[in-house]
């Protein structure tokens, strides 16, 4: 059961990673939600034992390899967000999808703030406001995305 759940977790996280690095036209790229973060959040809320902070860390490291200016940047941001969500997973799980979307919005904002600060500290400052757009689209896409993840996890809701 656990092993099977773990397999589904890795497949869904891998698909989310591919969606994250898929080349898209620039205007669509700005709108693209951080699928990998959403996947990690889903698993942290619904299966904190299988995934948890380790999952957040390594998923973040993978993001760093693909698009981080510094190794460890996304890893730190994502483990922080995962930690918060894992701590509160029971409370979050009992919320409705809309409320969950708001929580995800907050989590994505925290995630992006950490990235923003590290970008600044390491001298790769990206100050355009466009970098915040994905937090909004991520929150908007959360209800359907969570349903898809639930389906992928074999848990019909």
């Amino acid at each position: 059961m656990i092993a099977q759940g773990r397999g589904r977790l890795f497949v869904s996280v891998f698909v989310a990673l591919v969606l994250t690095v898929l080349p898209l036209p620039p205007w669509l790229d700005v709108l693209r939600p951080a699928f990998l973060v959403l996947a990690v959040l889903y698993w942290s809320v619904n299966a904190p034992r299988t995934g948890g902070i380790a999952l957040g860390f390594f998923a973040g490291l993978a993001l760093d390899v693909f698009q981080g200016p510094v190794l460890g940047e996304h890893a730190l941001a994502l483990s922080l967000v995962t930690y918060i969500v894992v701590r509160e997973h029971q409370r979050i799980r009992s919320k409705s999808a809309i409320q969950q979307a708001l929580i995800v919005f907050a989590a994505l904002i925290i995630y992006e703030i950490v990235l923003f600060m590290i970008d600044g500290w390491t001298g790769h400052a990206v100050t355009t406001a466009l970098r915040w757009v994905h937090t909004l689209t991520g929150a908007l896409i959360w209800p359907p995305a969570a349903a898809i993840f639930a389906y992928a996890a074999g848990r019909r809701s």
Binding site: F57, L71, G72, E73, L76, L80
Partner: peptide, 10 residues
């Protein structure tokens, strides 16, 4: 632990 690891890596 992981945050410290990430900072060290950075």
């Amino acid at each position: 632990l992981y945050a410290a690891l990430a900072v060290v890596v950075m």
